[in-house]
Write a protein that binds this DNA or RNA. Structure first.
Lengths: 239, 239
DNA sequence: CGGTATGTTGACAGTGATCAAGAAAGGTGG
DNA sequence: CCACCTTTCTTGATCACTGTCAACATACCG
């Protein structure tokens, strides 16, 4: 893991700070009890950072010791693995307010990288673990969090067996729901990242988007901004 | 969920009972501390069953309330979901000694079915949850268990992006390691289940096996028993 | 000993990958 | 602000892998 404070000119970078990391994390995951809020404060008390990263910078490398758990403040973070043949797989994108990287393994199985310019908080894993060992509420908080992540990965592993159109629609609706968006979907990461996440090539991704557009389900406002025209039909495709 | 004690003639069914569920669960997951053993005993104290199921019987249905967590005593259990178009996806196979189904959701997202004749124990979810709320050790035990499952599903979701040969080899080596087998791999479930798990058609599965056989990497002893001839080459294919 | 369920193989079709070219977007320096 | 360059995205033509349809083989069961 490399923690190196870097300075950027960062014109499009500054707005990120408008959001207070505390509030972001406290707010995330739908309100919750006051006890849960206390736990989130406990977790944030253990933080290091925030650290800034530019797109494509490595936050933690596959094989690094698992010293920290991560909390996204702004931007998008990807978890990925590159195979010998050069193929890359992305298992997840993490948005602001999301915590990830909890494990009992000594080393990371996946790299953690900035998919866009991003700001990330670090939380000492063994501090969390020590807290969980003493504090039942903290252990249960982590348990609930891990169970939720497990469920979303299970859902994803089912998706990966299906065709390109299905996978794309699923990705778009998921992204839209996580970003509380209107009918407008901002793709915050390059097509290459989305393609690697969905297990297809960027050409196929592009063509599949074009297909949905021709079918009148979505429209391209720009290549990074899509507009949903027929959310009912999209939803119906998913099951 | 249907818990109906059924009677079978069960000639090939009897041997399952040779294994004591207590010992199976206690033994599983690599020894562990004496405290961990105590936790496992606590969990087993909450059990219902054992229940017997014949191949393809439904143990819990997608949409059922999540009253129970499951523990496989003998046989193989699959977790799956069938889509509107008739396609079926299998997210996991569970072998004897494995516990699964922990969640905070009110209903199961996946069906649980017997992939072979199987014996399963049931554990009241809210009893476990109550125990975890009071007992830090129990909460941490469940946390560790869930984190391990998360990791294996993440690994799987990376696999699904790759080609049929890669997925098959990965499945075979994984199965071999989980069954502490020699070079002989027993496929305990029908090809259809394996194909659905790997996101391919049974014809493709069959052809891919034949491909590995022609390459001299494995041999077919019977259609349910494979022998690994060149484990080094197989391992090398995986990365 | 038939009958059903399961597994194997072949021929062909379709989806998505590959190779290649061009278009659009973003960043930099003049 | 524009020209230029690089990166990212789109589209077309072709190819490979996997799916589909069909026939046959094998195992399992009563």
């Amino acid at each position: 893991m490399q923690i190196s404070q870097e300075h950027h000119s960062a014109s499009s970078f500054a707005p990120s700070f408008a959001e207070d990391p505390f509030n972001l994390f406290l707010r995330s995951k739908a309100a919750g009890s006051s006890q849960e809020e206390m736990l989130r404060r406990n977790i944030l008390a253990l933080r290091r950072g925030p650290m800034r990263y530019r797109r494509n910078q490595v936050i933690a490398c596959e094989g690094d010791t698992t010293e920290y758990v991560f909390l996204v403040v702004s931007g998008v973070v990807r978890r990925c693995r590159t195979f010998r043949d050069g193929t890359r797989g992305i298992t997840a994108f993490h948005l602001p307010g999301e915590m990830f990287g909890w494990t009992y393994n000594a080393v990371h199985a996946l790299s953690v990288e900035a998919a866009s310019d991003a700001i990330v908080l670090f939380i000492k894993r063994n501090a969390l673990q020590a807290s969980a060992a003493q504090n039942t509420a903290m252990a249960n908080f982590l348990l609930a969090h891990t169970a939720a992540e497990l469920q979303s990965v299970q859902k994803r592993s089912l998706l990966m067996g299906r065709d390109a159109k299905f996978r794309l629609v699923s990705f778009l609706t998921d992204l839209a729901s996580r970003m509380e968006g209107s009918s407008q979907i901002e793709l915050l990461m390059p097509h290459q990242d989305i393609a690697d996440y969905l297990g297809m090539k960027i050409e196929t991704l592009s063509r599949t988007i074009t297909g949905l557009e021709r079918a009148g389900l979505i429209a391209r406002q720009s290549c990074r901004t899509l507009v949903v025209n027929d959310s009912a039909s999209l939803a119906k495709m998913l099951n």
